[in-house]
Nucleic acid binder design. Structure first.
Lengths: 121, 121
DNA sequence: GCCCCTCTACGACACAATGTCGTAGGTTGA
DNA sequence: TCAACCTACGACATTGTGTCGTAGAGGGGC
C-alpha cells in the first residue's frame, strides 16, 4: 500500500486539484527536496505531452491540468473497460467488490445514482 | 481506438484466456512475424516479474498466467479506486457513464447484481 | 541606468523497461 | 547419430523518466 507514485504522477495529482500553479508552487508542494529545475523539467515534459496547459504570467509559466480530475477518472475507466472487453460481467462484479470493500455505504450511493439514471431514461 | 497494445500486453491477453501455452503456441498466436526467441524472452521476463508461472513439459516450458483474467480485472479496478481516492462520487458517475455507453443493457445487469448483493447482506 | 534575482531554455547523464535478435549448447525422436 | 527444437544468456537500440547544471534573458529596486 502507499507505493510511492512517480514524480510525474505526484505533480499531476497536485494540478488535478484544479489550481493554476507556477513551477515554484509545485516545487514547494511536491518536491522541496528536489532541484527547482527538476520540477520545471517535469512540468515542461507534461506540457509537451499535452497533459497540462500553461500560460505566461510575467516571465514565468503558470501550469494547469489539461483535463479535470473527473475527466481523468472517466478516461481511466473507459480505458479499463476497453481492456476488459469481452469480460463485462467480471468487471461489473469486480467493481462492486471494490466499491463495497472501500466503503459499504457507497453501494447505496451507487444504487441511488443508478435509479436516477434509469428515471432519466 | 484500437491502439496497439505492447507486446507484453498482447502476450498476457492470450494467457489470460486461461490456457497453458508453450512458447511456440504463443509465438504462433501473437507473433508469427517476430523471432521465436523474442517471444521466449518476453515470456521469460514475464515469469521473472511473477506475472506468469511455468512448468517443464519435456524440455520445454509451458506458461500460464499467474492470475486469472478476473483477478487481473479486480486488481486493476482496485488500483484505480485507490488512485481516485477522495473522488469516489465522480468515479461512480464515470463508471455508470462508461457502462451505459459500452452497453446500455449492462445497467440492468448491474442493477441485478447490486440487488443480489444487498439481499445477501 | 545598472545589477541582482529569478525564470526559462536546453542539454546532459544515468537507469530501467521493453522490443528484438543471435548464438551456444543441451536433449530427443527418427 | 543427426537434424530439429528448446532454453539460457547476452547484446543492442529505443524510450520514458528522474535529476541536475549552465547560460542567458527580463524585471524590479537602488
Amino acid at each position: 500500500m502507499a507505493r510511492t507514485p512517480s514524480l510525474e504522477r505526484r505533480v499531476l495529482d497536485v494540478l488535478w486539484r484544479g489550481d493554476c500553479l507556477s513551477v515554484r508552487d509545485v516545487h514547494a508542494i511536491v518536491g522541496a527536496d528536489l532541484a527547482y529545475t527538476t520540477i520545471a523539467t517535469v512540468l515542461d515534459r507534461l506540457h509537451a505531452k499535452g497533459q497540462v496547459t500553461r500560460h505566461k504570467h510575467g516571465v514565468a509559466w503558470v501550469y494547469k491540468a489539461a483535463r479535470t480530475r473527473d475527466e481523468e477518472i472517466a478516461s481511466e475507466v473507459a480505458k479499463m473497460m476497453q481492456r476488459a472487453d469481452g469480460a463485462a460481467e467480471p468487471l461489473l462484479v469486480a467493481f462492486l467488490d471494490q466499491v463495497e470493500a472501500a466503503d459499504p455505504s457507497a453501494l447505496d450511493r451507487l444504487e441511488a445514482l443508478l435509479n436516477e439514471r434509469k428515471a432519466r431514461r
